[in-house]
Computed example of a mutant assay.
Amino acid sequence: MSDPSIDADGRLRHLITLDGLGRARIEGLLDRATSLREQFRAGSTSLPLLAGRTVVNLFFEASTRTRTSFELAARRLGATVVNFDIASSSTSKGETLEDTLATIEAMGTDAFIVRHKENGTPARLAAHARRAAILNAGDGNRAHPTQGLLDLLTIRDHKKRVEGLRVAICGDIRHSRVARSDVHGLHALGAAEIRLCGPAALLPDAGEFPGCTLSGDLDAALDGVDVVVMLRIQKERIEGLPGLDEHAYFARYGLDRTRLARAKRDAIVMHPGPMNRGIEIAADVADGAQSVILEQVANGIYARMAVLAELLAAR
Protein backbone atom coordinates (compact mmCIF):
# COMPACT_ATOMS: atom_id res chain seq x y z
CA MET A 1 0.00 0.00 0.00
CA SER A 2 1.33 3.45 -0.89
CA ASP A 3 2.26 5.89 1.83
CA PRO A 4 -0.79 8.14 2.47
CA SER A 5 1.55 10.85 3.78
CA ILE A 6 2.83 11.60 0.27
CA ASP A 7 0.49 12.66 -2.54
CA ALA A 8 0.65 11.66 -6.22
CA ASP A 9 2.94 14.59 -6.97
CA GLY A 10 5.41 13.61 -4.24
CA ARG A 11 4.33 16.42 -1.88
CA LEU A 12 3.76 15.98 1.82
CA ARG A 13 0.04 15.43 2.40
CA HIS A 14 0.02 14.34 6.07
CA LEU A 15 2.61 14.35 8.85
CA ILE A 16 2.39 11.06 10.73
CA THR A 17 6.02 10.27 11.56
CA LEU A 18 9.56 11.40 10.77
CA ASP A 19 10.53 7.80 10.07
CA GLY A 20 11.27 7.51 6.37
CA LEU A 21 10.57 11.19 5.69
CA GLY A 22 14.12 11.69 4.45
CA ARG A 23 16.84 14.21 5.04
CA ALA A 24 15.88 16.66 2.30
CA ARG A 25 12.25 16.91 3.38
CA ILE A 26 13.12 17.30 7.07
CA GLU A 27 15.74 19.95 6.34
CA GLY A 28 13.23 21.74 4.11
CA LEU A 29 10.78 21.94 7.01
CA LEU A 30 13.51 23.20 9.34
CA ASP A 31 14.54 25.84 6.80
CA ARG A 32 10.93 26.95 6.47
CA ALA A 33 10.58 27.17 10.25
CA THR A 34 13.72 29.29 10.42
CA SER A 35 12.42 31.62 7.71
CA LEU A 36 9.06 32.05 9.46
CA ARG A 37 10.83 32.75 12.75
CA GLU A 38 12.97 35.44 11.11
CA GLN A 39 9.87 37.14 9.73
CA PHE A 40 8.22 37.24 13.14
CA ARG A 41 11.37 38.44 14.84
CA ALA A 42 11.56 41.22 12.24
CA GLY A 43 8.17 42.48 13.37
CA SER A 44 5.48 40.41 11.65
CA THR A 45 2.53 39.58 13.90
CA SER A 46 0.73 37.34 11.43
CA LEU A 47 1.20 35.93 7.94
CA PRO A 48 -1.96 35.22 5.90
CA LEU A 49 -0.63 32.02 4.32
CA LEU A 50 -3.60 30.04 5.64
CA ALA A 51 -6.30 32.68 5.39
CA GLY A 52 -9.61 30.93 4.79
CA ARG A 53 -8.33 27.58 6.09
CA THR A 54 -9.83 25.79 9.08
CA VAL A 55 -7.73 23.68 11.45
CA VAL A 56 -9.34 21.34 13.99
CA ASN A 57 -7.57 20.34 17.22
CA LEU A 58 -8.67 16.74 17.83
CA PHE A 59 -7.03 15.88 21.15
CA PHE A 60 -8.09 12.65 22.87
CA GLU A 61 -5.40 13.13 25.53
CA ALA A 62 -4.77 16.10 27.79
CA SER A 63 -2.19 18.54 26.47
CA THR A 64 -1.04 22.04 27.34
CA ARG A 65 2.13 22.72 25.38
CA THR A 66 1.39 20.92 22.14
CA ARG A 67 -2.23 22.01 21.79
CA THR A 68 -1.47 25.65 22.62
CA SER A 69 1.54 25.65 20.31
CA PHE A 70 -0.46 24.27 17.38
CA GLU A 71 -3.26 26.75 18.00
CA LEU A 72 -0.85 29.70 18.06
CA ALA A 73 0.90 28.40 14.95
CA ALA A 74 -2.35 28.11 12.99
CA ARG A 75 -3.66 31.50 14.12
CA ARG A 76 -0.38 33.26 13.27
CA LEU A 77 -0.77 31.91 9.73
CA GLY A 78 -4.29 33.28 9.51
CA ALA A 79 -6.26 30.05 9.92
CA THR A 80 -9.47 29.57 11.86
CA VAL A 81 -8.96 27.11 14.74
CA VAL A 82 -11.65 24.83 16.18
CA ASN A 83 -10.95 23.02 19.45
CA PHE A 84 -12.98 19.80 19.38
CA ASP A 85 -14.60 19.00 22.72
CA ILE A 86 -14.03 15.26 23.12
CA ALA A 87 -16.06 14.94 26.33
CA SER A 88 -19.27 16.10 24.68
CA SER A 89 -18.59 14.71 21.21
CA SER A 90 -20.34 11.87 19.42
CA THR A 91 -17.28 9.67 19.97
CA SER A 92 -18.39 9.45 23.60
CA LYS A 93 -21.71 8.10 22.30
CA GLY A 94 -20.12 5.34 20.26
CA GLU A 95 -19.44 7.04 16.93
CA THR A 96 -16.31 5.74 15.21
CA LEU A 97 -13.31 8.00 14.71
CA GLU A 98 -13.69 7.58 10.96
CA ASP A 99 -17.29 8.83 11.06
CA THR A 100 -16.30 11.74 13.29
CA LEU A 101 -13.56 12.65 10.81
CA ALA A 102 -15.91 12.39 7.82
CA THR A 103 -18.58 14.51 9.52
CA ILE A 104 -16.26 17.37 10.47
CA GLU A 105 -14.39 17.14 7.16
CA ALA A 106 -17.72 17.56 5.33
CA MET A 107 -18.03 20.98 6.98
CA GLY A 108 -15.09 22.20 4.89
CA THR A 109 -12.24 21.79 7.36
CA ASP A 110 -8.71 21.58 6.01
CA ALA A 111 -6.59 19.91 8.70
CA PHE A 112 -6.92 17.79 11.82
CA ILE A 113 -4.29 17.84 14.54
CA VAL A 114 -4.66 14.51 16.31
CA ARG A 115 -3.40 13.28 19.67
CA HIS A 116 -4.46 9.82 20.83
CA LYS A 117 -3.30 7.24 23.35
CA GLU A 118 -3.41 4.40 20.80
CA ASN A 119 -0.54 3.81 18.40
CA GLY A 120 -1.48 4.27 14.76
CA THR A 121 -4.60 6.42 15.20
CA PRO A 122 -3.36 9.40 13.09
CA ALA A 123 -2.26 7.01 10.32
CA ARG A 124 -5.67 5.32 10.47
CA LEU A 125 -7.40 8.69 10.04
CA ALA A 126 -5.01 9.71 7.25
CA ALA A 127 -6.04 6.59 5.33
CA HIS A 128 -9.70 7.71 5.53
CA ALA A 129 -9.29 11.47 5.00
CA ARG A 130 -10.82 12.66 1.74
CA ARG A 131 -9.16 16.06 1.45
CA ALA A 132 -8.05 17.23 4.90
CA ALA A 133 -4.48 16.91 6.14
CA ILE A 134 -3.77 14.87 9.28
CA LEU A 135 -1.00 16.00 11.65
CA ASN A 136 0.13 13.65 14.39
CA ALA A 137 0.40 15.49 17.71
CA GLY A 138 1.42 12.29 19.50
CA ASP A 139 0.08 8.74 19.32
CA GLY A 140 0.76 6.25 22.10
CA ASN A 141 4.49 5.66 22.33
CA ARG A 142 4.91 5.62 18.56
CA ALA A 143 5.61 9.13 17.29
CA HIS A 144 5.50 12.86 18.01
CA PRO A 145 6.93 14.24 14.77
CA THR A 146 6.57 17.98 15.43
CA GLN A 147 8.39 17.54 18.75
CA GLY A 148 11.13 15.84 16.79
CA LEU A 149 11.24 18.77 14.37
CA LEU A 150 11.40 21.42 17.08
CA ASP A 151 14.15 19.49 18.82
CA LEU A 152 16.14 19.26 15.59
CA LEU A 153 15.59 22.97 14.97
CA THR A 154 16.88 23.82 18.45
CA ILE A 155 19.93 21.58 18.03
CA ARG A 156 20.71 23.10 14.64
CA ASP A 157 20.37 26.63 16.07
CA HIS A 158 23.10 25.93 18.62
CA LYS A 159 25.32 23.44 16.80
CA LYS A 160 24.82 24.70 13.21
CA ARG A 161 24.39 21.10 12.13
CA VAL A 162 23.13 17.72 13.31
CA GLU A 163 25.51 15.62 11.27
CA GLY A 164 28.37 14.22 13.32
CA LEU A 165 26.89 15.06 16.73
CA ARG A 166 26.75 12.71 19.72
CA VAL A 167 23.40 12.76 21.50
CA ALA A 168 22.25 11.17 24.76
CA ILE A 169 18.53 10.62 25.39
CA CYS A 170 17.85 9.66 28.99
CA GLY A 171 14.84 8.43 30.95
CA ASP A 172 11.79 6.36 30.09
CA ILE A 173 12.72 5.43 26.52
CA ARG A 174 10.34 2.46 26.29
CA HIS A 175 7.19 4.57 26.60
CA SER A 176 8.45 7.73 24.88
CA ARG A 177 7.08 8.86 21.53
CA VAL A 178 9.44 11.85 21.81
CA ALA A 179 12.48 9.56 21.94
CA ARG A 180 11.31 7.70 18.84
CA SER A 181 10.74 10.83 16.78
CA ASP A 182 14.02 12.35 17.96
CA VAL A 183 15.87 9.20 16.95
CA HIS A 184 14.22 9.12 13.52
CA GLY A 185 15.16 12.75 12.90
CA LEU A 186 18.68 12.45 14.27
CA HIS A 187 19.38 9.41 12.09
CA ALA A 188 17.98 11.16 9.01
CA LEU A 189 20.24 14.18 9.54
CA GLY A 190 23.36 12.13 10.17
CA ALA A 191 23.99 12.19 13.92
CA ALA A 192 27.18 10.26 14.63
CA GLU A 193 26.00 8.51 17.80
CA ILE A 194 22.73 8.22 19.72
CA ARG A 195 22.90 6.85 23.26
CA LEU A 196 19.69 5.77 25.00
CA CYS A 197 19.91 5.50 28.78
CA GLY A 198 17.55 4.54 31.57
CA PRO A 199 16.57 1.78 34.00
CA ALA A 200 16.49 -1.64 32.33
CA ALA A 201 12.70 -1.87 32.68
CA LEU A 202 12.31 1.45 30.85
CA LEU A 203 14.67 0.70 27.98
CA PRO A 204 13.26 -0.60 24.68
CA ASP A 205 13.56 -4.15 23.46
CA ALA A 206 16.83 -5.03 21.74
CA GLY A 207 16.63 -4.15 18.06
CA GLU A 208 13.78 -1.66 18.41
CA PHE A 209 16.18 1.26 17.96
CA PRO A 210 18.73 0.13 15.37
CA GLY A 211 21.88 2.21 15.29
CA CYS A 212 21.52 3.34 18.91
CA THR A 213 23.47 2.31 22.00
CA LEU A 214 21.47 1.20 25.06
CA SER A 215 22.85 1.76 28.54
CA GLY A 216 21.82 1.76 32.19
CA ASP A 217 24.80 3.90 33.16
CA LEU A 218 23.99 7.61 32.88
CA ASP A 219 27.55 8.72 33.62
CA ALA A 220 28.88 6.69 30.71
CA ALA A 221 26.06 7.81 28.43
CA LEU A 222 26.92 11.47 29.04
CA ASP A 223 30.65 11.21 28.36
CA GLY A 224 31.60 13.62 25.59
CA VAL A 225 28.12 14.20 24.15
CA ASP A 226 27.04 17.36 22.37
CA VAL A 227 23.36 17.18 23.28
CA VAL A 228 21.54 15.82 26.33
CA VAL A 229 17.79 15.14 26.08
CA MET A 230 16.14 14.34 29.42
CA LEU A 231 12.71 12.71 29.32
CA ARG A 232 9.89 13.03 31.82
CA ILE A 233 9.49 10.02 34.08
CA GLN A 234 5.96 9.29 35.25
CA LYS A 235 5.95 8.88 39.00
CA GLU A 236 3.75 5.78 38.87
CA ARG A 237 6.40 4.07 36.71
CA ILE A 238 9.07 4.77 39.34
CA GLU A 239 6.84 3.06 41.90
CA GLY A 240 6.91 -0.07 39.75
CA LEU A 241 10.71 -0.24 39.64
CA PRO A 242 12.26 -2.41 42.37
CA GLY A 243 14.45 -0.39 44.73
CA LEU A 244 13.83 2.94 42.97
CA ASP A 245 11.84 5.66 44.68
CA GLU A 246 11.99 9.26 43.47
CA HIS A 247 15.14 10.00 45.50
CA ALA A 248 16.91 6.88 44.27
CA TYR A 249 15.88 7.56 40.68
CA PHE A 250 17.42 11.03 40.78
CA ALA A 251 20.59 9.64 42.38
CA ARG A 252 21.06 7.17 39.51
CA TYR A 253 19.38 8.77 36.50
CA GLY A 254 18.87 12.46 37.31
CA LEU A 255 20.87 15.16 35.55
CA ASP A 256 22.72 17.44 37.94
CA ARG A 257 25.69 19.76 37.39
CA THR A 258 28.25 17.12 38.32
CA ARG A 259 26.90 14.70 35.74
CA LEU A 260 26.48 17.39 33.11
CA ALA A 261 30.21 18.14 33.42
CA ARG A 262 30.87 14.76 31.78
CA ALA A 263 29.36 16.06 28.54
CA LYS A 264 31.17 18.53 26.31
CA ARG A 265 31.60 21.99 27.80
CA ASP A 266 29.27 23.47 25.19
CA ALA A 267 26.69 20.66 25.38
CA ILE A 268 23.06 21.77 25.41
CA VAL A 269 20.38 20.37 27.73
CA MET A 270 16.90 19.67 26.39
CA HIS A 271 13.60 18.43 27.82
CA PRO A 272 10.21 18.08 26.08
CA GLY A 273 8.29 18.96 29.26
CA PRO A 274 6.58 18.87 31.56
CA MET A 275 9.57 18.54 33.89
CA ASN A 276 9.78 16.80 37.24
CA ARG A 277 12.45 18.93 38.91
CA GLY A 278 14.52 16.94 41.36
CA ILE A 279 13.55 13.63 39.77
CA GLU A 280 14.90 13.58 36.21
CA ILE A 281 16.62 16.97 36.24
CA ALA A 282 18.00 19.33 38.87
CA ALA A 283 16.46 22.80 39.00
CA ASP A 284 19.80 24.56 38.55
CA VAL A 285 20.44 22.54 35.38
CA ALA A 286 16.94 23.13 34.00
CA ASP A 287 17.44 26.87 34.53
CA GLY A 288 21.17 26.92 33.83
CA ALA A 289 23.27 28.41 31.07
CA GLN A 290 23.34 25.18 29.03
CA SER A 291 19.57 24.70 29.13
CA VAL A 292 17.65 25.42 25.91
CA ILE A 293 14.32 24.11 27.22
CA LEU A 294 12.40 27.35 26.80
CA GLU A 295 13.89 27.78 23.34
CA GLN A 296 12.40 24.40 22.47
CA VAL A 297 8.99 25.69 23.52
CA ALA A 298 9.34 28.82 21.36
CA ASN A 299 10.66 26.82 18.40
CA GLY A 300 7.65 24.53 18.63
CA ILE A 301 5.42 27.28 17.27
CA TYR A 302 7.65 27.88 14.24
CA ALA A 303 8.15 24.17 13.53
CA ARG A 304 4.38 23.68 13.58
CA MET A 305 3.84 26.76 11.45
CA ALA A 306 6.23 25.27 8.91
CA VAL A 307 4.35 21.97 8.80
CA LEU A 308 0.94 23.66 8.49
CA ALA A 309 2.25 25.91 5.73
CA GLU A 310 3.81 22.97 3.90
CA LEU A 311 0.59 20.95 4.05
CA LEU A 312 -1.99 23.67 3.45
CA ALA A 313 -0.56 26.81 1.88
CA ALA A 314 -0.47 25.46 -1.67
CA ARG A 315 -3.81 23.62 -1.54
Rank of each mutant, 00 (worst) to 15 (best):
A303E: 03
L260W: 04
T54K: 11
E246W: 03
E295F: 00
G171K: 09
A220F: 02
S92P: 04
G52L: 00
T258S: 14
V55E: 05
D217L: 02
E239Q: 15
A303L: 01
L189V: 00
T66F: 03
T109C: 14
G43D: 04
L214F: 08
G138S: 01
R265T: 15
M275D: 09
A309Q: 12
H184W: 12
R315T: 12
R265L: 13
N83V: 12
E246F: 05
G198I: 08
A111E: 09
I134P: 00
E163H: 12
L231Y: 05
V225T: 06
R161N: 08
Y302C: 12
T103R: 02
S215F: 07
G148H: 03
G278D: 06
S181R: 10
D266G: 02
N141W: 15
F250N: 08
I293P: 03
G108W: 00
S63L: 02
M107V: 10
S2N: 14
F40Q: 04
A87S: 13
G273F: 01
L36R: 09
C197M: 03
P272K: 01
R67D: 06
D3Q: 08
G94L: 08
D284A: 11
H175R: 14
R257Y: 05
D157E: 15
E95L: 05
S215V: 07
R232D: 02
I16R: 08
A102V: 00
S92H: 13
R142Y: 15
Y249V: 10
L214Q: 09
K117C: 07
L50I: 05
H271T: 09
L18H: 00
L152E: 04
A261F: 10
I6R: 09
R277F: 11
F84V: 07
D223K: 14
A133M: 08
A314K: 14
